[in-house]
Design a protein around this nucleic acid. Structure first.
Lengths: 131, 131
DNA sequence: TTCCTTGCAAATCGTTTGCATAATG
DNA sequence: CATTATGCAAACGATTTGCAAGGAA
């Protein structure tokens, strides 16, 4: 299972690093195909999974039934707009103390947590007000 | 769209109320079929979705690719064991102040958040130690 | 040459849906 | 009677996988 270089994998990672909007596998596929029209969707999925497994990218499960991917693996939280589906990084203080709170009355071992926020993004909020 | 009574829906809700382990649609189907062998999986899905939509049950998306359902709709948090997949209720203090923290530097409107914790449940933790 | 990676297509899996029939109010 | 709900099977959408061929070390 030694990792070998692959042009496709490089392309996928490079593309992901240019985006801050947490694209899905399909969006990655559409875009990467412009550089390499022969790349297959299966290859995109395989590489996204591989990159996520080795920690070079993050896989986001945001309850919309589709996985999103993020080249930014630093700890941060996401906001999901329930109107337009956009996924936005939040600038907020660390809340990892909730892990300690969760473990206080629990006899297993808590390794981490998944948290995301939802509501209306600023654009959709404006549209609501003006309608 | 007036709701009509249905024996199947009652069965599903009753079954769910007897369980604290947050079963999936398939588990509901398997069990409810013992009372009504003719019930179809489609009916189980339709009713779980309906009950979740009207707020009588909660749909849990815990990143394992399968929806779980919970008859307990009171606010509480869940723990997911990454080894055996079990889903357990946590007894912990309210952490909804994280919504305010998330909104501090955000110009959209945050309506809520999804949070769950993961790690090893007490049983799996024991097995790890003894191996 | 070894064996990891790809492209392609078929397969999987959870979930949804169309339709004719049955049950409810 | 007007409608909602059901059973069945087919359809779906996202993701995974088997396989033979291609590419990296």
């Amino acid at each position: 299972m030694a990792l070998k270089h692959s042009k496709q994998r490089d392309l996928i990672k490079e593309f992901l690093m240019t985006r801050k909007d947490h694209p899905t596998a399909d969006v990655v596929y559409m875009n990467v195909r412009q550089q390499n029209p022969n790349i297959s969707l299966g290859t995109v999925y395989r590489n996204l999974t591989l990159l996520a497994d080795i920690g070079e990218i993050a896989r986001l499960r945001l309850g919309d039934g589709v996985d999103h991917f993020d080249a930014d693996t630093s700890p941060h939280y996401h906001f999901v707009c329930t109107h337009c589906g956009s996924v936005i990084d939040l600038e907020m203080d660390d809340i990892s103390e909730i892990v300690a709170q969760a473990g206080a009355n629990f006899d297993g071992h808590i390794e981490g947590h998944v948290t995301y926020f939802y509501g209306s993004c600023s654009d959709c909020k404006k549209k609501e007000l003006s309608s």
